[in-house]
């Protein structure tokens, strides 16, 4: 554990809490892509199967349980409790176009050909692109509420901080994981456009609105 890893995890935790609070307080999931949330649920489910086989630390176990539980809770809020507010007309990204290639790639490039390891690799590849339905939705509607922008900023920051964690681990511990590093860089690059808009607009008190 190092400071980059810890702040990355905390940014991830913060993102999830912001999203849940936004939906709960406004009683609405307007502007939130259910498709991205389905992908995140698939990501956590396939990645954290090792909860039952490998114990790393209490921290590791508790965080995994929180990420799993919160992703299912978010899906419940979007697809059941506040279904009427879900903007499905703008959430039209075809997730099979992300799930299938991520799975094929995991079969081709993985650390080991065991069920858990291939599914872990699949989850890493899928996570790197899981935000695309949400970004697609923002580009389709041309805007995002400020709270949604804060959520996206925290969520994007998490993998960017993990890149610093991987550099630190490479330098200090001579430990690296190429699959996680490359996928994490792809994931962070996808947010760059959004980061730019966040800094130039949302932080100056303006709404995130794309030019028509």
């Amino acid at each position: 554990m190092n400071i980059f890893r810890l702040t990355g995890d905390l940014a991830h935790l913060l993102a999830i809490i912001i999203l849940l609070l936004k939906i709960w307080k406004t009683r609405s999931c307007a502007g939130i892509s259910g498709k991205s949330q389905i992908l995140f649920a698939i990501v956590y489910t396939t990645r954290y199967l090792d909860l039952v086989t490998t114990f790393v630390s209490a921290y590791n176990t508790l965080m995994k349980i929180f990420f799993l539980a919160s992703s299912y809770a978010t899906m419940y809020l979007i697809y059941i409790k506040f279904k009427a507010t879900y903007d499905h007309n703008h959430d039209t990204f075809r997730i099979e176009f992300l799930v299938a290639p991520a799975f094929v790639l995991a079969m081709l490039i993985t650390h080991a050909y065991t069920l858990l390891e291939v599914l872990w690799t699949f989850s890493i590849y899928l996570e790197s692109v899981a935000i695309l339905p949400q970004l697609f939705m923002v580009s389709k509607t041309g805007e995002a509420e400020s709270i949604t922008s804060h959520y996206l900023f925290a969520l994007g920051s998490y993998r960017a901080l993990y890149i610093l964690n991987w550099i630190y681990r490479y330098v200090m511990e001579n430990n690296y994981d190429l699959i996680a590093i490359v996928a994490g860089i792809v994931q962070t690059v996808l947010y760059c456009d959004f980061f730019y808009l966040y800094v130039t607009k949302v932080l100056k008190g303006k709404k995130l609105q794309l030019p028509a």
Binding site: D50, M63, H111, D177, A180
Partner: peptide
């Protein structure tokens, strides 16, 4: 080439 995933990171 690839170093093993240590399952520590989330």
């Amino acid at each position: 080439l690839l170093q093993e995933n240590d399952h520590d990171e989330l």
